[in-house]
Design a protein around this nucleic acid. Structure first.
Lengths: 182, 182, 182, 182
DNA sequence: AATGAATGAGCGTTCATTCAT
DNA sequence: TATGAATGAACGCTCATTCAT
């Protein structure tokens, strides 16, 4: 594992455990097994490290999503299953996603928003690809909000249940909500 | 207005504008027109002030909700309309709710969770009161997640559209999702 | 002595002993007998503390100078005597003056320059008030440079000789240099 | 140009532009076209590099001075002309001389003092070589202070005038000050 | 109850220097 | 010799909280 990768991994663990503000750069460095200053050779600062972490996690998420969407499963079902399976297998990332996506630092929030937007587009496309009679924006927020809240509950429970197994019920309800059942 | 109330009001404005971490106790005191030390005569500290704020806001929200639920409207529709109408008229509170409800400080998050739980019970009761075939937990998270995400989008937009007017479409979709249409 | 005054006194000692860069705010606070944060209640930061120190020292210097110039002694002689007497009685201030007046931080240097300029005007006025045939700028630099270098040598020696007693010889040579002897 | 020489040249530029404290070893290395570590093969550290720079610059200055003093011009006049001509043609070196000669780091200041002393001896010798009635130390400081302050003013002006052309007026005034006019 | 001056722990970041290659 | 990635000590400043008045 490259130094950069171990720093990112360490950062994921520390940010997830402590939250952005309480996370200490020194703790990340120690967790990564490098000196404090070394972190700054790879990332400009705390904020950049966090954004980079988020960005790469999301890029991987999106890449996998596109693969999942390419299968023969109806897009919305594929998307729901993928969302819950992906985060259900990455507790730390899920924590970060839930906790930090609505961050109080406006700049950070904007960075995050820019990173997440492509996912919103995928959701809208998945909805548009099925028969439905819903307001597309309200529907998109319903889909994301529903999935996101399942993850939040899972994180709140400390990962006590199997997130991925919620997929069938979630997508059944969402499909029916959108009016695309026949 | 009592001193306590003006401190709470000031805190609402400051927390909403700056976020929990960037909010300065001194700014809250100044905004409330009291000395720094005075805040501590009414609230043990920053965290407690924030929790108190959240708690009272939520208590009022819940009280109004119960009134709304007492009308002849179907509970779920009443709840959706109320949620969007209430926050749609209180931008600062909405910001705080969205941004801070999933806070990175674990202790704070737990406090918030305890405060919000009664609302989850109301949502589950509203679902139970209608014909439906959904998993109650998944459904409750769908309802809350859907409503919450509408608010988040509204906050992100800077309050650029009318939140309350989304209610009919939101409750139509939710009703259909739950299978309670006939 | 007010807190502000004790901080300024402490700062004078610490800056003189260590130089601007090596001087630690914590050392100044400790020397002043206050907490670290207290310094920042009176001065915006290290730079501002230094400039304030310089400014007040110089203001006092200038006020005393104007008094000295008001006597019946020829201005240039009064000025030389005053310069050497004033700094000769304030070793720490002399150190700061010599060491920091030509500071490498451009902003700081500019602040210092602005503060010192009025003294240059007084010197030029003192020269103009006597019969002389010298270029006024070259002459002003000669007067200041000559006085300044006596102080530098005194500081370098650790204050080992009596600075004020150099005044007669210094002003005799300067008077003669300017061509004002008859 | 040897590596050592290019490092010294780079250091001159960087120290002049940024000042001792703000000068970065990495910047010097980059400017010299060598790796960071390479600088330490030639100089023990930042301080030593600076002292070496100053030392060599001064050695060259002194060598040229001795040549200038060997001419038939009266020593003091030769010295003044040389001082102003030499620095007037080397802005970077002049900046370093003015800004850093009275450095706040005591050890560095002592090194510098040791390096400059031979020049003081030359000045005293030049004074001694002419008829005069002045205290030799006061006179030496007058000569150096006067010259130095011309350079300081020139540096402060950003090199806006011709330094060397001040020589006749400077040495005229100094000669007259010392009482060596006939 | 109210004040607000004082406190002091806490931390992100820089950069001279080292050393394995 | 030369490299440049890695090191880690060092420090100015903030701000929640306290407490003498």
């Amino acid at each position: 594992m490259t130094r950069e990768a171990s720093i990112l991994n360490a950062a994921t663990r520390v940010f997830a455990a402590a939250g952005y503000h309480a996370a200490r750069m020194a703790a990340i460095a120690r967790e990564a097994g490098v000196a404090d200053g070394t972190v700054y050779l790879y990332f400009r600062g705390k904020r950049e490290l966090f954004v980079a972490l988020f960005q790469r996690g999301f890029a991987e998420f999106l890449a996998g999503l596109d693969e999942a969407l390419a299968s023969s499963t109806p897009p919305l079902d594929a998307l729901c299953a993928y969302h819950l399976r992906y985060l259900g297998a990455r507790y730390d990332l899920a924590v970060i996603t839930q906790v930090e996506m609505r961050h109080s630092d406006p700049e950070l929030r904007e960075d995050i928003g820019r990173i997440v937007r492509p996912y919103f587009d995928r959701i809208e496309a998945a909805i548009a690809a099925m028969p439905h009679d819903a307001d597309i924006k309200v529907a998109r927020r319903m889909v994301f909000g529903t999935l996101d809240e399942q993850v939040t509950a899972w994180v709140r429970s400390g990962g006590a249940f199997d997130l991925a197994s919620l997929a069938p019920e979630v997508s059944r309800l969402l499909r029916r909500a959108l009016g695309g059942n026949d």
